[in-house]
């Protein structure tokens, strides 16, 4: 019964996540950027833009310039999260890919550093006057949610082991629309329920910063306005052939 419920919830959540995110990305992609507004100095070639975006997404270059504390906590959290997510691929692959097997031990430590990063970010939000001023309840709740996901995961690893073989069987089955039994384990239920919340709310929340950064005109535009005419469709319509 519970296994079926979770299987269905995961289908729905995944659907909402994927459709929500794609529709948002679609909106961003279709909205024109009528003017050239890269924050200069900016790359003058497409290759340069790819490099700039890579530095931004992988190293958080701008945040590094802005504030070392926020950068170190933020980067620690995101890098750890990436490792943790990749580590979880083992629940969805059989046989487990070689590199996924290789990163398993690092993924465990990443769970701890992820928690540390989140704690640091939350401390900043709670104790730095300026950051507290700009925080909304949802800003705090997102941190609580992520901390709870990380903590419940770590507890399953270090305190109350869950039957990971059964979990894997459940998700492998889930991928083929074949519902297997999910262990009735309180920590696991909490962990998975929180992940469901994350998936559902992702496309309508500030987590849209993840796709958003790629569409940010100040970061993704090439600095070549004198060499190539850039004009949006709606702006072109204002022009007449007679030149006025």
């Amino acid at each position: 019964m519970m296994s079926t419920l979770f299987a269905i919830l995961f289908y729905l959540a995944t659907l909402l996540f994927v459709v929500g995110l794609l529709s948002r990305i679609n909106t961003y992609a279709r909205t024109p950027a009528p003017l050239k507004i890269p924050t200069t100095p900016a790359p003058t070639t497409k290759g340069g833009v790819v490099l700039r975006m890579t530095r931004e997404v992988v190293f958080f270059e701008s945040l590094f310039k802005a504030n070392l504390w926020t950068w170190s906590m933020g980067w620690l959290f995101h890098a750890s999260l990436a490792l943790v997510v990749l580590r979880h691929l083992r629940y969805f692959t059989e046989p487990v890919w070689g590199w996924v097997a290789f990163i398993q031990p690092f993924g465990v430590y990443a769970g701890i550093t992820m928690l540390a990063g989140l704690a640091g970010l939350w401390a900043r939000r709670l104790f730095v006057e300026r950051i507290r001023y700009i925080s909304t309840p949802s800003d705090h709740l997102w941190l609580v949610l992520l901390i709870a996901i990380a903590a419940s995961g770590l507890l399953m690893k270090f305190a109350a082991h869950t039957d990971v073989i059964a979990v894997k069987t459940f998700f492998l089955g889930w991928m083929h629309f074949d519902i297997q039994t999910l262990p009735a384990d309180a920590l696991l239920i909490v962990h998975l329920s929180l992940v469901l919340l994350l998936l559902v709310f992702f496309p309508i929340s500030k987590l849209l910063h993840a796709p958003g950064v790629f569409f940010s005109p100040t970061r993704n535009q090439t600095d070549n306005p004198r060499d190539k005419r850039h004009i949006a469709g709606w702006a072109k319509q204002m022009e007449s052939e007679s030149g006025k």
Partner: peptide, 21 residues
Amino acid sequence: LSKYRSFKVYMDACVHCGACT
């Protein structure tokens, strides 16, 4: 919001990290 990608994306993307404060 429909004419300027900058405005649209910037309304969504802010996470209140405080880097600009």
